[in-house]
Every structure is written in structure tokens, then in C-alpha cells.
């Protein structure tokens, strides 16, 4: 059962990473970042690594997305 869930998550992970890199619009690629992070968190929980899952959720999926949104906010203002 766990293996099926793992395979689905892995497919989603690859899709999100692909989408994050090859989409033209900046904002949608930034939105894909927390999705990528949270899928990784679930994979870490399945691989029995709760401390790393917590840290990944809080720092990579949480704070780094905030930093990216601020950068977009500050840089997109001039372009359009």
C-alpha cells in the first residue's frame, strides 16, 4: 500500500519539478515551489525521517517561498 502511494507521489514530484522549470510565467513557477516542498515532506515522512520532514516543511516549503514571493513583488513592480 505504501509503495503505491510512494509511486504516485514520485510522479507528482517529477511533474511539479518539470512544471516549475519550464513554465513561462514567473508567479506560477513560484507557486509550484511549496507544492514541490510539501510532496517532499510527505516522502520524508514515509521514509521515517520526521525531523527532516519538519525542517523541510518549515524552511524550504515555508520560508523560502516567502523569500521568493518578496523577490517577485519587488522585481515585477518595475517590469509591467
Amino acid at each position: 500500500m505504501i509503495d503505491i502511494i510512494l509511486y504516485i507521489l514520485i510522479i507528482f514530484l517529477a511533474l511539479t519539478a518539470f512544471f516549475m522549470v519550464f513554465t513561462k510565467d514567473m508567479l506560477s513557477s513560484i507557486i509550484a515551489l511549496p507544492i514541490f516542498g510539501s510532496i517532499l515532506v510527505v516522502i520524508f515522512v514515509i521514509l521515517q525521517a520526521p525531523s527532516a520532514a519538519l525542517a523541510e516543511a518549515v524552511i524550504t516549503a515555508g520560508l523560502t517561498t516567502g523569500f521568493f514571493v518578496i523577490t517577485i513583488n519587488k522585481t515585477e513592480m518595475q517590469n509591467d
Partner: peptide, 21 residues
């Protein structure tokens, strides 16, 4: 785009952490 490069760094970083786990 510069921001896309930084996203690339985040992806490589996450893949190394997944490898570590």
C-alpha cells in the same frame, strides 16, 4: 531569468537532501 536560476539551486538542494534521507 535570474529567479529561475535560484529555483534551479533550490531543486538541486532538495534532491541532495532526498538522497541523504
Amino acid at each position: 531569468n535570474l529567479i529561475k536560476i535560484v529555483i534551479g539551486f533550490t531543486i538541486v538542494e532538495s534532491s541532495l537532501i532526498l538522497l541523504l534521507i
